[in-house]
Computed example of a mutant assay.
Amino acid sequence: MQCLLWLLSLWILCLLWPGCLGQLVRIPMQYQASFMASRRQHRAGRSSLLAKYNVVGGQDITSRNSGATETLDNRLNLEYAGPISIGSPGQPFNMLFDTGSANLWVPSAECSAKNRACQRHHRYNSSASSSYVPDGRRFAIAYGTGSLSGRLAQDTVSIGQLVVRNQTFGMAMHEPGSTFVDTNFAGIVGLGFRAIAEHRIAPLFESMCDQHLVDECVFSFYLKRNGSERMGGELLFGGVDKTKFVGSLTYVPLTHAGYWQFRLDGLEVGGTIISQNRQAIADTGTSLLAAPPREYLIINSLLGGLPTSNNEYLLNCSEIDKLPEIVFIIGGQRFGLQPTDYVMSVANDDGTTICLSAFTLMDAEFWILGDVFIGRYYTAFDAGHRQIGFAPAA
């Protein structure tokens, strides 16, 4: 009888703890695709990407002092966002989930009335939350168009049925220029590691793992490349969804647990190997494929691109179907991109449609694989085992 009561108590406890039954927490991704990106936005995306990784003269990513600088570009129709709530009772926010940064921040109710980015999004009101705890420290993150700054706080953060207690986050009181004015997200959920976080604050997913809210310390992304605001894909906390990919995941170890950084074995264009043994970073917070200088020039030349003064390469829209497959070799496996994956149709300044290469210049010796790649390949971010996995998206 005593054993039966113990088992019954354990079962009840298991029902109250989401991770006990191996429950997966699904966060729908909204894909803002209401209009075609403009050429100006495409250029802004590249500038923001370079600022995000603080690229200076080919500096090695593993030796960079991270956390102080990150940039999110105003990509409009090239960004994925999903819901969270902060406080008690919960205050809702639509957020960008970014594996290329590690801080959580939202606009504050104390943000200036003159700040358009704050005023156009929901703002966190600390006085309306019974679980709010002031921190006192200031935070600032440098962006390409200004500095986002404010104060740190602690509060309850809810994502789906997961409730994270005492999470430290930023209350933004000053947001830069027009960077976030037209975005479909109010703030950022950084999903990188603590090593790149401002003030070395524990990122939200680390807190989920520490509080035993997930059965596995793994999250995974399924991004639809032709989605709408209602059907943009899914972020899964606690594991992977085998119905969202084909075959099995190819896992490779992280080479540095700050960004989600790993070894890229090689790169092929039309069957010819043009690069070997590079470092790469998987970044859901950018749309582009950022290449080192040598590969950038070779790839765009092989695609027949015409260089512009803005480091863009124009492609012939009528010849897209004749372009080669570009294959990334990771963990000994081949992950190919077709022309429809790496060619971006954008609105030119005169209103016409032009085609641009998604391969942009990274003035450093590593790759950034953004949504162009992650949208094609289901990606599992395994923080517990310090590894990342890829498989063809279903």
Rank of each mutant, 00 (worst) to 15 (best):
L4C: 12
L5Q: 11
L16I: 01
C20Y: 10
S34C: 01
F35I: 03
Q41S: 13
H42R: 12
S48K: 09
K52Q: 15
G58M: 04
R75T: 11
R75Q: 05
N77A: 13
P92H: 01
N94C: 00
M95Q: 08
M95W: 09
A102W: 03
A117S: 14
C118A: 08
N125Y: 04
S127C: 01
Y132I: 02
Y132R: 05
Y132P: 00
V133W: 02
R138N: 15
F139A: 06
T145P: 00
L148V: 12
F169A: 12
F169E: 10
G170E: 09
M171S: 09
E175R: 06
D182H: 14
F185R: 03
G190N: 10
F205G: 00
M208C: 13
E216P: 01
V218G: 01
S228H: 05
E229A: 09
G238Q: 05
L249N: 03
G258S: 15
Y259K: 11
S287V: 13
P293K: 08
P293V: 08
R294D: 09
Y296E: 09
I298P: 01
L306Q: 06
P307G: 05
C317Y: 04
I320A: 05
I320E: 11
I330R: 03
L337C: 03
P339Q: 13
T340F: 01
D350H: 12
G351I: 06
D363M: 06
W367I: 00
L369A: 09
R376N: 06
R386P: 00
Q387E: 15
F390S: 06
A391M: 03
